[in-house]
């Protein structure tokens, strides 16, 4: 027999399900599963086999740009707490802000492990101008209190592309970078799902929102797509990987009703 004693998630009402997965308690139980035995995102005893020469340089550039994306997401998620329309979404965003802060910290730590003495300076030097432009615009949307547009830019455009790129990169990365990226991917599942579902519900209630979000998409998604396609190309990913990136992102926006 299935029942509450078995904690069958499929027996929950939609309201009870949302309350459960948006809670800090759920987040805590989730991250304990894959972070409890880690330090800075990887197993303490994991052997480093970092690339050298030009490959190392390309990895540093990719990680620096991931740091730009994660900083945008950290500042965005933090700012959105004030804008969020209700208490459960504010609580969820507080867990997302913690996740984004962790991502930034483990990526900077990885840069140091790769021999980068001043990660902040290196990030400033290697940051892709398109990604910086995206970050500026995202934070303008957050400051303007435009919940729908800011959430779309951050949790759909940025997070969906990061999710796809980190997947592709992790498959080819050295063992420690792979562990760091895999931990981030596990967090990103919650962020992309939250964004898509929250916006999906709002569009269902008011289809007129879609027109406004289409303008945001037209302005911003090329900036992020260009950055991450470049990152994958520089890491030597095959053309099929770059096509996968575009396809994964398109599937998300198509589900939300954008052709």
């Amino acid at each position: 027999m299935s029942g509450p004693a078995e904690h069958d998630p499929h027996a929950l009402t939609p309201e009870a399900f949302r309350a459960e997965v948006h809670s800090f308690e759920f987040w805590f139980g989730a991250v304990q599963g894959y972070l409890a035995d880690r330090a800075y995102g990887h197993r303490v005893d994991a052997k480093d086999a970092a690339p050298e020469g030009a490959d190392r340089d390309r990895l540093v550039t990719a990680l620096c740009n991931y740091c730009v994306g994660e900083t945008a997401a950290l500042e965005g998620a933090g700012g959105l707490i004030e804008v969020a329309p209700n208490r459960p979404t504010k609580i969820f965003l507080s867990t997302q802000a913690v996740d984004e802060g962790r991502h930034l910290e483990v990526l900077i730590h990885r840069l140091r492990e790769l021999g980068v003495e001043d990660p902040e300076a290196e990030i400033a030097r290697r940051a892709n101008p398109s990604l910086l432009a995206f970050k500026r615009r995202l934070l303008e949307l957050v400051k303007g209190g435009d919940w729908n547009a800011a959430l779309f830019a951050q949790n759909v455009i940025l997070e969906a592309m990061e999710f796809a790129v980190f997947h592709q990169h992790a498959a080819e990365a050295d063992p420690i970078t792979r562990e760091v990226l895999e931990g981030i991917i596990k967090d990103e599942r919650r962020h992309i799902g939250f964004g898509e579902n929250e916006l999906g519900r709002r569009i269902k209630a008011d289809p007129g929102i879609r027109g406004h979000l289409a303008l945001v998409r037209r302005e911003l998604d090329a900036l992020v797509l260009e950055t991450f396609e470049e990152a994958l190309a520089s890491l030597g990913a095959p053309a099929s990987a770059r096509e996968d990136l575009g396809r994964s992102y398109r599937q998300t926006v198509e589900r939300l009703g954008f052709a």
């Binding site: 998630p9 499929h10 929950l12 939609p14 399900f17 949302r18 459960e20 997965v21 948006h22 759920f26 599942r189 919650r190 992309i192 799902g193 939250f194 898509e196 579902n197």
Partner: peptide
């Protein structure tokens, strides 16, 4: 429900 990404 997918609890990993909070989707029904």
């Amino acid at each position: 429900y997918c609890m990993a990404c909070m989707t029904r």
